[in-house]
């Protein structure tokens, strides 16, 4: 526990100092303010499509920090030095996932409030959207981290990360945006299942990717 707390604290500090935490938030707000210009100021249309638009924006925002999640620490030898101390790569990825979600999920959920206001979403929709993001952002964070471990050390890893992540993110988008128009709660359950799956496989697959990258 102490170990994870140490690693999480360091990762959060690094993210804060690199100013990378603002990038997804700024992106979400930017998309929300551009969208009405593109589709016109029809409040009914904005309210009907705005929630889905915000899910797309959240998904794309999760790709922005990918190139700073793993590659810099790998290149600086920090991952090797952690491994020398007998700490497993899976543990490193778990700590990184926690730190990444803390720096990504809650700020995005807060930014979604003014963004929802820009898109004229009503109160019930905002509530559903926030609940969906609460369940969905851990999966978006896990997916970003997973592709970051897979592409660390490759050239033009950013573009490749997008190509890898987006197909895997399709279920999140379907069920996440699906929660907005679905009264039965089934979409929430599917979103939760997809989220749990991604959070569960990321430490295993990410740890293996970091080890394989040492060769």
């Amino acid at each position: 526990m102490r170990l994870i707390a140490l690693l999480v604290a360091r990762d959060l500090g690094q993210a804060w100092r690199s100013a990378g935490l603002w990038l997804p938030v700024a992106f979400l707000l930017l998309v929300a303010s551009l969208y009405p210009f593109a589709v016109g100021p029809d409040a009914a249309l904005l309210a009907r499509t705005g929630g889905g638009m915000l899910w797309i924006a959240a998904l794309l925002a999760s790709l922005l920090p990918v190139d700073r999640l793993v590659a810099p620490d790998r290149d600086a030898g920090i991952l090797d030095q952690i491994a020398l101390r007998g700490i497993s790569e899976e543990m490193v990825v778990i700590a990184r996932l926690i730190a990444h979600w803390l720096g990504f999920g809650p700020p995005l959920m807060i930014a979604a409030l003014p963004a929802a206001a820009l898109l004229k979403l009503d109160g019930a929709t905002i509530l559903t959207l926030e609940a969906g993001l609460l369940i969905g952002t851990p999966a978006l964070a896990a997916l970003g981290l997973l592709v970051a471990t897979l592409t660390a050390g490759l050239r033009s890893s950013g573009a490749l990360a997008g190509l890898l992540a987006l197909p895997l993110a399709v279920p999140l988008l379907i069920f996440g945006a699906g929660t907005l128009g679905d009264g039965s709660g089934a979409a929430f359950k599917f979103l939760g299942a997809a989220s749990l799956l991604l959070v569960a496989i990321t430490p295993i697959a990410g740890g293996a990717a970091i080890r394989a990258g040492r060769e």
Binding site: S18, G77, D80, Q81, L84
Partner: peptide, 14 residues
């Protein structure tokens, strides 16, 4: 236990 000093610094630059 082991400590390794190679060509990489492994210290946070900022």
């Amino acid at each position: 236990s082991v400590a390794l000093a190679d060509e990489r610094l492994a210290l946070d630059m900022e």
